[in-house]
Simulated scan of single mutants.
Amino acid sequence: MEQLNLLTADAWHVREEAHQQRVRRYADPYLARRSAGRKHPVEDFLFTYYTQKPGQLLRWHPGTGVVLAGDGAAARSGWKHYSTLDDGELAAVGLPSGTTAVTFDRRSFVADRQEAVAFAGIILRGTAARPAQFGCFGLHEWAMVYRQDKFDLRHEYLQLRLGSAGTDKVVEDNRIRCSHFDAFRFYTPDAIGLNELTPSRENQRQLEQPGCLHANMDLYKWAYKLLPALPSELVMDCFELSWRIRAMDMQASPYDLEEWGYPPIAIETPGGKAAYVEHQRAFAEEAAVLRGRLAEALAPLAEPAAP
Rank of each mutant, 00 (worst) to 15 (best):
A247F: 04
F184D: 01
I176L: 14
C212Y: 07
H180N: 12
H155Q: 01
K169Q: 14
Y262I: 05
Y187P: 03
R185E: 13
D182S: 07
N216E: 10
H214F: 11
A266G: 02
D168A: 11
A247H: 03
D249C: 07
D190K: 11
P199C: 09
V145W: 10
T188E: 10
R246L: 08
M248E: 00
M144C: 09
D182Q: 01
D256G: 03
D237K: 11
W260T: 01
E259Q: 12
L227G: 02
L197G: 07
I192L: 14
M248W: 00
H155V: 15
P210R: 08
P189T: 13
W260Q: 02
I265K: 01
R205V: 09
D173M: 10
P231W: 06
F239K: 02
V235Y: 05
H214L: 13
W243D: 04
E258F: 03
N174I: 01
H180V: 08
Q148D: 08
P210K: 07
Q159S: 15
L227F: 05
G166W: 04
C178D: 08
G261V: 09
G166R: 04
S179W: 02
Q209M: 14
Y224L: 04
L197T: 07
G163C: 08
I265Y: 04
M144L: 07
S179D: 00
P264K: 05
Y224D: 07
L197Y: 15
E156R: 15
A183L: 10
T167I: 13
T188D: 08
D152S: 14
V170N: 02
S232K: 03
L241A: 01
Q204K: 15
D173S: 14
A229R: 00
G193T: 06
G261H: 02
K169Y: 09
S164D: 11
Y220N: 13
F181A: 07
A266Q: 09
S200L: 09
L227S: 12
M217C: 15
F151I: 01
L160I: 08
A143L: 13
R175F: 03
E196P: 06
A215H: 09
T198H: 14
P231M: 06
S253N: 06
E240F: 03
W260L: 11
G166H: 04
R244A: 10
C238M: 02
S242H: 05
L194C: 08
R175E: 09
M248F: 11
A229W: 01
A229L: 08
Y146M: 09
